[in-house]
Simulated scan of single mutants.
Amino acid sequence: MNETISTILKRGSLRKYAEKDISKEDLEVILRSSMRAPTAGNMMSYSIIVIRKKETKEKLSISCDNQPFIKNAPVLLIFLADFSKWYKYYQYNDTKEFMAEKGEYFEGPSEGNFILATQDALIAAENAVIAAESLGVGSCYIGDIMENYEYHKKLLNLPKYVYPVTMLTLGYYPEGYHIPLKDRFKKNYVIFDEEYKELSKDDIKDMFKERDKLFVNANKYNAKNYAQYHYNMKVKSEFSKEMTRSVKLALDEWCGNKI
């Protein structure tokens, strides 16, 4: 097994960090690796904010669902879906006027552009994760940065057509610390040949049998099995509702309206 594959297969989410800063050289490699990620049309429709200030990390640890480990990471990277720069480019080069001359409307970015920019940002983030891991820098994805849109917009000075898609915590592994890797679903329930395979009831039962073992009878939802517990913990949770609200606010901007 080569070193790259070994790095990918051993990686887990790190939430405990050595008490030392990430070196300038290592951080530069991580960021350069991000910027070499595949990108739709070579547009690089994303931006990355590097967070080092203690007070900002503390605010983000609260706004991202009160997760204290976030503020203990030496560096946070926030990956943004970003069409703002392209639209400034269009504006400065009289694109709106050009479209009017053609008898057509000049429109803002659409929902499809939002998805493309989100893909760009996430691919860049994963490049950062793998590069970091190869340097002994652990990471954890924080999807909660999508919540509290108005607050994060102000905190991070985000203009129109910019949305925080994900955040990474970065820090060196503590000496002798190892992450127990979590099991993944079986390959035959995730990888399909040629077309999607609809799973049967027996398939679903087998697929989730290890997750079912996590169920605890005494739970705050009074759920009778792990499926019921998980649905209430994730789908019906307050953070999920807030994330949905924030995404909808972003999509109010990214809706292809005439400008």
Rank of each mutant, 00 (worst) to 15 (best):
N113S: 08
V216N: 15
M43L: 05
G256E: 04
T7L: 09
Q91M: 11
L116V: 09
E126R: 09
S47W: 03
L199S: 09
K236N: 15
V216I: 12
V162M: 10
K236F: 05
D202T: 12
L199C: 06
E101I: 12
S45A: 10
G138M: 06
A223K: 14
L168H: 01
V216M: 07
A124D: 07
V50E: 07
K20F: 00
K234T: 12
R211T: 04
M44W: 09
V162S: 04
S47I: 09
I130G: 02
S13D: 09
S237N: 14
N66D: 11
N148T: 10
Y226Q: 06
V216E: 15
E147A: 09
N148V: 09
K96P: 06
L31K: 13
D202C: 00
V50M: 05
Y229I: 01
V162L: 00
E19T: 11
I78N: 04
I123A: 11
D82K: 08
F69C: 04
N42G: 05
S134K: 07
P159D: 05
K187I: 03
L80F: 01
A223G: 10
Y196R: 07
E175M: 06
S134W: 13
W254Y: 15
I49P: 00
K54L: 04
H152A: 00
F208H: 14
S110W: 04
S6Y: 12
Y89T: 12
P164R: 12
E111W: 08
A124C: 03
T169R: 03
T118A: 12
M35S: 09
R36V: 04
P159F: 07
G112Y: 08
V129R: 14
Y172V: 00
S237T: 05
W254P: 00
T166V: 13
L14G: 04
P109D: 07
K54M: 09
H230S: 15
D183Y: 14
E107Y: 07
M233H: 14
I8Q: 09
D193V: 12
S237K: 01
H152G: 02
P68K: 08
